[in-house]
Design a protein around this nucleic acid. Structure first.
Lengths: 198, 198, 198, 198
DNA sequence: GGGTAAGCGAGACGGTACGTCAAGTCTTCTG
DNA sequence: CAGAAGACTTGACGTACCGTCTCGCTTACCC
């Protein structure tokens, strides 16, 4: 087994920590997630964790980012309505049903208490996520399916805002029907086309 | 000074605790908010806190609810667009600029880690808040300014969702211009719309 | 069981800590004596130890002092030679064979690294011990068995010095014969009497 | 700089370690003396230390032994009283004022907790030191200044015992006057005495 | 209007986790 | 192949709060 060498950190330990953190969050919730517990579960020394991560939230963040990118990259079907419906559906699923989604909710929750984490979360995840959210709309503009002057950011807010609101605030489920309806509403008033429906 | 009596709790102590909790949250953030600290600041014994509140979040919740109701009850101007613009503007201000808003963000954050608190928050605050959010629309339906079949709940989601999204997720500011635009968009596609504009 | 009250510390906890410290020192030696271990053995919280003792050596010191006073108070037989022989014999036994003696050796050892402990050890124990060591000689002076001008402190140094030297430095045993001989040598040259022998 | 070679250990590294250990002991005391600190100060890898010394006390021991032999070898003036006075004076100075003396006190202290070190200290230092202590007396016997049957070891105990007692136990200073007086007392009762006085 | 019981401030208690420090082991690369 | 570098596991450190407890004081009500 690897026990350290002069060429930097142990990838083995890194993976074990990330997985242990993920598992423990899902098992015991954020309150039950302790550095001590992660160390024990990962079979790693506490000091090794403190050497590489400044806090348990940074561990979660690192564990989370790759998962999100993989899961949430929107497909390109060539049709705006379809792209949006798929993307929002995936987003809602991700946030409500996956382990990574649970990690996100925990991070978003903790970010309310911790400005540093909030900033890190925005830099490391939300910026990229917003880029992914914008893609279907940008492609539609390129194709000419949406007018060039479309305010893409405002559109994204209106499309994903209600989803995050339900996930983080009301706790209501976000069914496919609901996300489809958001898409329909958006396309319905959008001047650039006419055949959309929800 | 009051040192207990045989019939019922000390209102003095209750107030001191609620204020200390509020103050400390704003001063030191949620992470720095401890029962020990509240007790000391309030000049109260820890036991007194544990006697009346099951957790520090319940203290915040109790401190929060009245403030919210007072601040967020929507006025009735007889005009839907005006009512909505005022209400959303107030909501955004409340969430982003007031002490009570900071308490709400902390509670919403903590609710991501604590299902019991989440439930309490929904029961004690969000249900009532949603009722307040619905009022302008319900009144418009009564007045005939909106069709009877309007899906009020879906409308509320679309109106307040993006605001909460910005407050809790992206951290972007929520200017009056932004909330006005949400209202405009909503009324623009709403069939029974009156004179609304953004 | 007792769990704290407003009238100060728990005597139960105090006793448990002192005994646990003594036991663990004898069992595992000074190096193996940890605050954590004492707490566990005593069934006491670590914080309780830190509340009342600044370091593990203070615990040992407190545990030690009473034992020493009890064991080492010299008897009064009315005869200087007998008194001295008994006292030095007891001292040698104490230092080499008793648990409290082991504690003393550990404290004396640690005092070589820790000036604060050294001072405490002198204030709390050695001053009193020296007083006890002087008593047989002082009584002899009072009785007229030793001249009034006798340098009692120098005499004590010569009588106990070799004992401590063997105990702390050479590690050689200190038999009754050896201490008797120290007494004999001392009395032999002491001008004030003539019948002593070793 | 030297970074290892294929033929035996680095004398450079050895010296650096010994000096660093000595320096750090005097600077920070025994408690502040760590293998990590020695390695850093000596510009040496920790592993190099562990390769050649089993513990930090062995480093001190090695650093100490030569110093002691050099400083404490008693001169031969041909006169017992003078030899003893000089030797005890030097011993007292060594123990109380020199850096090597500080190392000795630390080692003697640590030896109370560590039987292995105690044994090593006796084998490597105390045995030789006792031989040095005995020399003046042995020479006096050879010269006929002391009777052949003199118990040299008992004499050494009585001469150096009070000095170590003061150094290690009471912490009192050991002035030249004090050591001279020890010599005087010894010679005073010794049947073969010459011209000794205190 | 004196007794009495509940609420209170105080604070010690047994715990858990924190974040830090050093010990001693192991691995890799350089000279 | 010794040594520099440094990551690793281990375990204790001393601290901060947790939630529980006991105590004696201070009322307000009830006889």
């Amino acid at each position: 087994m690897h026990h350290g060498n002069r060429h930097g950190r142990s990838e083995e330990a890194r993976q074990a920590v990330l997985e242990a953190a993920d598992d423990l969050l899902v098992e015991k919730g954020f309150a039950g997630l302790t550095v001590e517990g992660i160390a024990q579960r990962a079979g790693v020394a506490k000091q090794t964790i403190y050497r590489w991560w400044p806090s348990k939230t940074e561990i979660l963040l690192e564990a989370f980012i790759d998962d999100a990118a993989e899961y949430l990259t929107p497909a390109d079907t060539g049709d705006l309505a379809t792209d949006l419906r798929r993307h929002l559906g995936k987003l809602a699923d991700f946030l409500t049903t996956t382990d990574a989604g649970a990690v996100f909710r925990a991070l978003a929750g903790q970010a309310q208490h911790d400005p540093v984490l909030a900033e890190r979360l925005r830099t490391e995840h939300l910026g990229r996520q917003r880029e992914r959210d914008r893609q279907p709309l940008l492609r539609a503009i390129t194709r000419g399916d949406l007018p060039v002057g479309t305010d893409v950011d405002f559109a994204v807010d209106q499309l994903v805002g209600p989803i995050y609101y339900r996930v983080l605030v009301t706790g209501e489920p976000v069914a496919r029907k609901y996300t489809d309806r958001l898409v329909a509403q958006y396309l319905d008033r959008s001047p650039g086309r006419g055949d959309a429906s929800g």
